[in-house]
Amino acid sequence: MKAITVEPKKPGTAKLMDIPEPGVHEGSVLVQAVAVGVCGTDVEIVEGKYGWAPPGQKHLVLGHESLGRVIDPGPTSGLKKGDLVVGIVRRPDPVPCPNCAVGEWDMCSNGLYTERGIKEINGYMSEYWRIEPEYAIKVDPTLGLLGVLLEPSSVVAKALEQVGLIGRRSFWEPRTALITGAGPIGLLAALFAKLYGLDVHVLDRAAGGLKVDLVRELGATYHSGSVKDLDFEPDTIIECTGVGQVIAESIQRIGANGIVCLAGIGHGGASPTSSIADVASAAVLRNNVIVGSVNANKRHWYRASQYLARADRGWLTKLITRIEKPENFMKALQRSPDDIKVVIQFSDI
């Protein structure tokens, strides 16, 4: 079968190649790939920045944002042939640490977890893949191709859960949420925050175009420019850019008792003008909390699937701005200014 692979940490090695079909030892559920979403993690692995092949193997099959159709449900999965499913990305470490032992592998404390398409397990960019039943999430069939959005959505579901859990440390009735960054994570965060009933604001660099339109179609408010120029103090901020200046300004702009959730991962850049001490003082004096959130466990995947099922299909469709064939996977990895979510489609829905 065909698969998109890379030799981890070796730039220029990504290719579409023939590999053996997956064996039952990889999971009792056999799935035909429908589509795989492309994100910055895939790009960085192709660029050789990180990634780990399965033990004893040279190549890693890419892809962690999956959507597939069940071909053989196996003996005990509870699925049936034709069901649409996505595969959970992370697997608990074998020790296991206390968090992995209770199913919270997203909070793994020793770093020995594995991840499909990233770390030591082949991903979903192949014509067929297998999965263990407990890591397959059934997708509402009315979502169709939009089910491929479940992986970024699970990350958002966790971030919002973290905010809610921390908020219960005191009396807290959040009304306004600011989302910084209008990429896939930011727009899905805006969608879910609206489903929570919050007054949602989204800030991004774009002055016009599809992102602005999508925010306004949600009934949210769009801002371009700087966080420090906003004329209100949000109760919570979901930071999705990873940009140091935006992070510092968000911490200083959050309202009293507010929560800043860092969901974006940055890689250096210009230093913020505010000193670390000033940023910390702003947080201390106003009882603010700054929390990092990454990955998701099965609970978050389930919640994300419920949120997506409630969402307007027309709006979700606009998030997928480009669909490429597997043989054109390099084009999918090259992001254009108008892209939000790019998808590689392996078979018809």
Rank of each mutant, 00 (worst) to 15 (best):
M1W: 03
M1A: 13
K2V: 00
I4N: 08
P11L: 01
G12L: 00
T13W: 09
I19M: 12
G23F: 02
V24A: 15
Q32C: 09
G37E: 01
V38C: 04
C39Y: 04
D42Q: 02
D42F: 00
V46P: 04
E47H: 09
A53K: 05
Q57Y: 02
V61T: 13
S66G: 12
L67A: 06
L67Q: 05
D72W: 03
D72A: 01
D72G: 07
G74W: 01
S77P: 10
S77W: 04
K80G: 11
D83S: 04
V86P: 09
I88R: 05
V89C: 13
R91A: 10
D93N: 12
P96D: 01
P96L: 04
P98D: 08
C100S: 03
C100F: 07
V102K: 15
S109R: 10
L112C: 06
R116H: 05
G117A: 11
G117E: 06
E120V: 00
I121G: 01
I121W: 07
N122E: 08
N122Q: 04
N122W: 03
Y124W: 03
E127A: 12
Y128I: 09
I131Y: 00
P133M: 09
E134M: 10
V139I: 15
D140T: 07
G144C: 00
L145K: 09
L146Q: 12
G147M: 08
L149S: 08
L150Q: 03
S154C: 05
A157F: 06
V163R: 02
G164Y: 09
S170H: 13
S170P: 00
W172H: 13
W172N: 13
R175C: 00
R175E: 11
A182F: 02
G186E: 06
L187N: 10
L187P: 06
A189K: 04
L191C: 12
F192M: 12
K194M: 14
Y196F: 12
R205L: 13
G209P: 09
L210A: 12
K211E: 06
K211P: 01
D213G: 01
E217D: 12
L218H: 07
T221V: 15
H223K: 05
P234D: 11
P234L: 11
T236Y: 13
E239H: 01
V243I: 14
G244V: 05
I247V: 15
N257P: 02
I259E: 13
S271L: 15
V279H: 02
A280S: 15
S281I: 12
A283S: 14
L285K: 11
R286N: 11
N288Y: 03
G292H: 09
S293E: 12
V294L: 10
N295L: 06
A296G: 07
A296W: 01
Y302Q: 13
R303I: 07
R303V: 10
S305Y: 08
L308Q: 05
A309K: 11
R310D: 03
D312S: 11
G314M: 05
K318R: 15
K325M: 07
E327M: 02
F329W: 08
Q334N: 14
R335C: 08
S336N: 08
P337H: 05
D338M: 08
D338W: 04
K341V: 01
V342N: 11
S347I: 04
